[in-house]
């Protein structure tokens, strides 16, 4: 029971309380870049859930099997993680193109974008590096914890992206002052959306 509660907290904490986009500002580029259309946002959200889970799995194993036992994690984790993630995304792209063209068509164009998305690297780093994580846990995650936390974060990313895309569709027809049109207004809207997440702070003592 204890562990179940712990995992549930990790999931909710990652998805809502510490929402990666709106409360921690990680991965904002796609947040403003692809949220113009609902369809691409849904595709992007799906691709992020997929890649983030795979990336954390790979980097967690890489860290715990190779970097940490050899004692080089401290110096090498940045280049090592980014290369593992970049290589992984390349392989996933090649594999999807051959094996599942339908899935490739819906996720494929987002995959190269995700390599340089800080959300993936941030989540991978937080899962293994104690002290970078915000919820009062100061040890590196076990494998199960890392996986659950990552899925939570990715779901939170999807929720925020899709709800923001819905807001921006309405914004297209709203009367906005000339100087504020487009991106500036999108920022103000995102600010108002993130007010909602202030209210979630402190939920379950997270």
């Amino acid at each position: 029971m204890e562990t179940l509660q712990h995992f549930a907290l990790l999931l909710v904490g990652g998805a809502l309380v510490n929402n990666i986009l709106l409360t921690r500002f990680i991965g904002l580029c796609p947040f403003f870049g692809v949220s113009g259309a609902m369809e691409t946002s849904v595709g992007m959200a799906g691709a992020v859930v997929f890649v983030m889970t795979l990336a954390t799995t790979a980097t967690w194993v890489f860290w715990n099997v190779l970097l940490e036992p050899l004692g080089v994690g401290e110096f090498l984790y940045i280049p090592a993680f980014i290369l593992v993630i970049a290589a992984l995304v390349q392989f996933v792209e090649m594999y999807l193109r051959k094996s599942s063209p339908a899935l490739y068509r819906s996720l494929g164009i987002f995959l190269p974008l995700i390599t340089t998305n800080c959300a993936v690297l941030a989540t991978a780093t937080e899962s293994v590096r104690p002290g970078f994580f915000m919820m009062g846990i100061d040890y590196g995650f076990g494998f199960g914890e890392a996986l659950v936390y990552t899925i939570g974060v990715a779901i939170g990313f999807g929720i925020a992206l899709i709800s923001f895309a819905a807001l921006r569709e309405r914004l297209e027809v709203a009367p906005v002052p000339e100087a504020m049109k487009g991106i500036p207004m999108a920022f103000i809207t995102a600010g108002l959306l993130s007010f909602g997440y202030v209210g979630l702070g402190g939920l379950f003592g997270l």
């Binding site: 921690r24 500002f25 920022f187 600010g191 108002l192 202030v198």
Partner: peptide
Amino acid sequence: VLFPGAFI
């Protein structure tokens, strides 16, 4: 200082 302030 909280996150909405940054966006706005």
